[in-house]
Design a protein around this nucleic acid. Sequence first.
DNA 1: TAGTCTAACTAACAATTGTTAGTTCGCGTC
DNA 2: GACGCGAACTAACAATTGTTAGTTAGACTA
Lengths: 208, 208
Amino acid sequence: MPTQQKIRDTEAANRGSASRREILDAAARLFLKNGYGDTSLRELANEVGMKAGSLYYHFASKEQLATEVLGIGVKGVAEAVSARLDDAGGGASPSQRVSIAIRAHLDAILNDSGYTSAHIRCFPYTPANVQAQLRAVRRDYEDIWTGLIDDLLGPRRNEDDARYLRLAVLGALNWSLEWFDPERDSAETFAATVERLILGAEIPGQAG
Amino acid sequence: MPTQQKIRDTEAANRGSASRREILDAAARLFLKNGYGDTSLRELANEVGMKAGSLYYHFASKEQLATEVLGIGVKGVAEAVSARLDDAGGGASPSQRVSIAIRAHLDAILNDSGYTSAHIRCFPYTPANVQAQLRAVRRDYEDIWTGLIDDLLGPRRNEDDARYLRLAVLGALNWSLEWFDPERDSAETFAATVERLILGAEIPGQAG
DNA sequence: TAGTCTAACTAACAATTGTTAGTTCGCGTC
DNA sequence: GACGCGAACTAACAATTGTTAGTTAGACTA
């Protein structure tokens, strides 16, 4: 590689370059709508008013672009949930904390910028390379929920029960991407439904 | 189109042609693994030991192939659920019927031939054409669950509650495709968790 | 044996893909 | 005014895509 392109360092992309964020925004939108494989760089470039080749000034490859978009998505929902839990303060009960997390997660999926939804919908179809690079951030977010559920079930909980409860709730929430219609549906009503499900369920070895 | 290819009628494909079913099987497998857009006809052909062009003897287009695969998927799970409900007979309570349906649906996703899982994972990324053609069969299956939930909640149910309960449960089940690991997980234990969620939830306007 | 049908094949097509190299234009700084 | 740099451009590349036309080999049937 004789004349290597100058690629801006991914993490230290603080300075200006308004269009870089525009590209990421548009990429999130297209990834959400079309999936990873069916989003072409020409379509993306066209969306932000440039040509495909120009994207390579900002990103080293499609994979790196996707990694960045999906990374913002997980970090975004993790921060949103954490923030609202912090707002609730130390006095909140485990049940209340779960309620808060449900609403924050749903809000991030349905109302936020699209990065989180893009992550949820695209991640499984992303190249192994991308998935590997996202493992750590995904794990961070997973840990938040593991903690919430552990607190809810208490010290006498069963390991598998906690895992399946967490996956069931997140599944119910994430799946809303496939059917939620802002014209018809209410995020709050759905959140209340999921909340009733998890808080109303009897935990084996817990009752009586 | 002077020399139109002889395409066997889709529905009346009863006679022999073992390899037609082989193609469908392989397509379901690849669609599940790679998604619709990232499954190439050459890869599919290679999987069944022929060349890409030869597939067009059996199917008019990639879209038609996908329509057929995903159609088998929905019909399969609908029939599986119906059959097990029928087995239970008229004496089964609404709760019992929901339990049965949960297990039948999960079984179709996790253990069956792959058509149903391919449908669940691929449908959203499929061309509009394909989605339109699958609308009716999808609706048929949806109706089964609507009936189950309606019976569970009873005549005093709220319309939205029923809808969101159904979507939450199916979401929890369908999402298992993203995490279920046969080495680690137990479908029965997860089914029991989801069952506890839905049967343990207090229904508003129902209690007291 | 001649004719027809099944089921594949080969070879190419136009389009699209991610990617790269080299160029250009404008803006600020010496 | 010359220089350097950020940020785009053009034009092409090799590969891959769905798809089609025409061909071929084998098996059944008259």
